[in-house]
Amino acid sequence: MNVFRLAGDMTHLLSILLLLLKIYATKSCSGVSRKTQELYAIVFIFRYLDLFTDFISVYNTFMKVVFIASSLAIVWCMRFHPVVRRSYDRELDTFRYFFLVGASFALALIWHEKFSVQEVFWAFSIYLEAVAILPQLVLLQRSGNVDNLTGQYVFFLGAYRAFYILNWIYRYLTEPRFTRWIAGTSGVVQTALYADFFYYYFISWKNNSKLKLPA
């Protein structure tokens, strides 16, 4: 474990806590894409299939459980919580994410560490995570004004993978024969997809104005 990876995991955890806070405090999920939350639930379930078979550390197992449980809890809230579900932007959150799931799985069948069920699903989860934010970014563009907690959620969600890239560089430089081509390539694509969001987030922070993404 190095400081970049720890910062990445803590940033990722923070983003999830911010989203839970937003939904709990405002009893609303306006501005949040349920499709992105469902994609993230799929990402965590298929990435952590080894949750019960491979024990790496208490930290690793604990975080995996937190990620799976929180993503499922958020999807449950947005679908079934009597108050929260009413504020879901159903008519704006229309990204047809079936193609993202299909393309990620197709790519995983071609490019994986090993051709086994667990490894193909692991690669699938890596590719899917790279594009999982797209429905959320589209929703932000369509919904105009973005509330602070939702903006912070997306910001830290994008930042965590940037820390992971620093972690991969650090490990590549310090550990012999360390390579993470699948996660690394996908992580760069994932972080790049946030580029314009980061730009408008920085502008809103500098001008102390409301975050606004151009339609």
């Binding site: 990722h12 080894d50 491979d54 690793n60 993470r180």
Partner: peptide, 10 residues
């Protein structure tokens, strides 16, 4: 063991 080596990250 090598599987644990390259899936040690979240």
């Amino acid at each position: 063991l090598n599987k644990i080596l390259y899936h040690d990250e979240l």
